[in-house]
Design a protein around this nucleic acid. Structure first.
Ligand SMILES: [Mn+2]
Ligand SMILES: [Mn+2]
Ligand SMILES: [Zn+2]
Ligand SMILES: [Zn+2]
Lengths: 158, 158
DNA sequence: GGGTTATTTATAATTGTTATAATTAATAGA
DNA sequence: TCTATTAATTATAACAATTATAAATAACCC
């Protein structure tokens, strides 16, 4: 944890930004909830617990800054809000997501998987790929089980 | 064109929705601007040209309805607005996008490309893939040329 | 036709996000 | 250390995209 804070601090300093207490509190919230996909409002409420005097605008500006520095990625799952996702430690690419259309759960894939596809895009379309966003929509493992269970039961009606 | 309208009309009827004049005008605008990625506001202004009495809320509701029927896909490129993208004629999957970080252009890839990756996801993660969203961010062909041209010129400084 | 339901319009309300002005904190030089 | 300058934050207003509401209109069914 401290190690990753330190790293982010250096990234800020390298662009002559400071890690202010408010920014640090925000980063800590992101680290403590790394598996989640928090909206700006979510982050704001969590930061407020440890630094009640923080303003919403500061959270927005901090998240924007962290996006520019590629510390976090801003993503959108189709509900009306932007969500903020920390880059994994040492990751060279943005990770992928599995969104369940039954239960709404969001799982992550850290493996790249797109090497082949990206060189194909570079060769056939002449597009120089710098980054990607990949989301699969479908049925998660546990929702699949539930469907099977429901269909094998005789009490399907209602 | 008429052929595709007819097809969409049937899709609506199959769920007992009607193709009202307002809905038809909206669909026509989408068909006439298939290569673009229009926001709801964009669509509204274009529909207004051929049916000036239409209301903004109707456009929003129509786009929402078409999304549910999978006639259009609602996408988000990170600016604050949702954009609406017609499914290509006969397409079984949502097409991919190449977004240029220099000039902002958006190109499309209709080829699937993800067959391998998706079976890997199904096998290794046990996730049943129903749909996908894939966007590459990078430098488009013409912006690459410009960069090369600029660096080979001796007058680089402004 | 008369009653019912679906759809649209006009408009108000809501929500996520950004801009503004005043205040506070950090920084650097005298 | 005092002072001037700049960076960052707070509180709040403004904005823009989207959704909800109520009244009007159109389509449908008996
Ligand atoms: Mn994630
Ligand atoms: Mn497209
Ligand atoms: Zn699920
Ligand atoms: Zn370009």
């Amino acid at each position: 944890m401290e190690h990753r804070i330190e790293k982010i601090k250096k990234q800020l300093h390298s662009q002559s930004y400071k890690l202010t207490p408010q920014r640090e509190a925000t980063v800590r919230v992101l680290l403590e909830n790394e598996e989640d996909h928090l909206s700006a409002e979510d982050v704001y409420l969590l930061v407020k617990e440890k630094a009640p005097e923080i303003g919403l605008a500061t959270v927005y500006r901090t998240l924007e800054l962290l996006s520019e520095l590629k510390v976090v990625d801003k993503i959108n799952f189709g509900d009306g809000v932007s969500r903020f996702d920390l880059r994994k430690e040492g990751a060279t690419h943005f990770h992928h997501h599995l969104v369940c259309i039954e239960c709404g759960s969001v799982a992550e894939i850290e493996e790249d998987l797109l090497g082949e596809v990206e060189s194909q895009v570079e060769n056939q379309w002449g597009f120089e790929v710098k980054d990607h966003r990949l989301t699969f929509h479908g049925i998660c493992k546990s929702c699949q089980k539930q469907t099977v269970a429901a269909t094998t039961t005789t009490h399907m009606e209602q």
